[in-house]
Design a protein around this nucleic acid. Sequence first.
RNA 1: GGUUCCGUAGCUCAGUAGGAUAGAGCACAAGUUUCCUAAACUUGGGGCCACAGGUUCGAAUCCUGUCGGGACCGCCA
Length: 546
Amino acid sequence: MIYNFTRTILMDALSKLGVDNVQIILEKPKNSDFGDLSTNIAMQLAKQLKKAPRLIAQDLIDNLNIDNNFVQKVEIAGAGFINFWFSPFFFQKMLSDISIASENYGKQTIGNGQKVLVEYVSANPTGMLHIGHGRNGVIGDTLANLYDFLGYDVTREYYFNNAGNQMRNLAKSVYVRYRQLTDAPDFEMPEDGYFAEYIIEIAKKYIVENGTEFIEQNDKNLQKFQKFAEIINFENIKKTLIDLNIHQDTYFNENHLYESGKIQALLDKLKVKDLIYEKEDALWLRLSALGLENDRVAVKSTGEPTYRLPDIAYHIEKFERGYDKIVDIFGSDHIATIPDVIAVVKALGYDTDRIDVVIHQFITLTENGQQVKMSKRSGKSYTLDELIEEVGADVVRFFLLMRGVNTHLEFDLNLAKEQSDKNPVFYLQYAHARICSIFEKIEKGNIQVKFSNNLSGINESVEFELIKKLAEFPYIIQDATKNAEPHILSDYLRELASIFHNFYHNCRIIGEEALIMSGRLALATATKNIIANGLNILGISSPEKM
RNA sequence: GGUUCCGUAGCUCAGUAGGAUAGAGCACAAGUUUCCUAAACUUGGGGCCACAGGUUCGAAUCCUGUCGGGACCGCCA
């Protein structure tokens, strides 16, 4: 509100000076000596107008149509900043608007019902999810929540491949474990097999359900083991996702692309466009014609396609399903392959600007200051299940979301396990619980509260600080979504909680005179709603008691 | 060797449409409770923003290079 208000009066003044089409940057000064809001527009225009910034600033102020009910003071400072101070009445009005919107404050319609597909997790059913999948899933799920909050029509998709090499490997590994448990203790695991403990569990389960009769190693039998393992793995994965409060609407099987003929259709199209050619019995994508470094194999000499072909077909499929926006969440291990896929999809005539690829970096787990190695081969990797079990879903989600997606985040197990004030999750949740307890006290103590629209009881600077922070919420949501950075929201909530705790410490609610009490209750209610909404978007619970 | 991410306080990290004195949490030190939850609040010390150049009124932020760490560079996905 202060942003729109200030932008409007500035634009008005600018047009009086004959300046149009400039973007006005408004920011909250770090130092409160510089007012409630600040703009550097005069400095921005210095070059264009060939005039000293401070003189431009003065011209602007002279032309500002200032309503003294809203604006207390405007000053020029430093090299040419224009600083605004707002009136208590304005802050009261802001709080009033926030209160009227109630739980819907911050919800927006800018998405306008546009269809967004967010794809995340997308782990193949070869085993348990690990912490890397967790980061992927939690980022995707939170972005989906954000889009939803902004009024987009969101579909959450999980893409998987239950065929191919990795799955055959899995089948073989389970089969070997089965043989080891039945007739052949010395049967050797394939070199690139899955060595993790759960493979043995699957084999044991197979025995429980099917007995221990001798099973010959052949394709048909391996198929049976594969299907068996796949079903168990998917059950486990889905359970883990639910435990972490990650939701998916649709599961898309890569195989569908083959069965429906989409892969063949893609190959045909590529041939027509001369983007594919044969060399050494394989089919190669002519990526060099699309501005990329090297051509890559699309179909191996064995006749099997590489992952590139279905990836391209899948993106086309997404376009054809009519999505306005396509969001992919990938780990940094995919970073090299994405340009290939995008380039081909673009060459086939699709508007790839609608694709937003979010790449997150890897995680390092530390315990007692030591890095916990995560190795797939040895099977010693920490599973998501174990992590959730140990520290709880709220903590896992928050820790995975509290850093920029582009940082190599360090997951400190000791800190995560800490059930104390050191753990940043509880700081937020505690603010929520504190507010709830005020209302509980009022209810139980039969305290009379007269709610009124008159917020003139709000006059302390801590209260204004809190209102300013509350008013940022809608912009924070937009920012976090646009930049695909959930941590923008978690950082904001932490700051909000901090200002609230400060307010709580300085301003009593119960027992104050009616006007002050009702005003502060409105403030507490608004804070509670925003924390609850924010935590909900992050997929974290808002406890009423702690 | 190439591509890419990162390098900011003792530790973990914000800040990168160029702007005012570079911030937060933790750790460390000192304080706050007859009063709505002390899982809280207040105050303090702590910095060659990896390094070197460049662009300009102004650079942690943009450009070039160097160094250090992660990821990727396959007829694996």
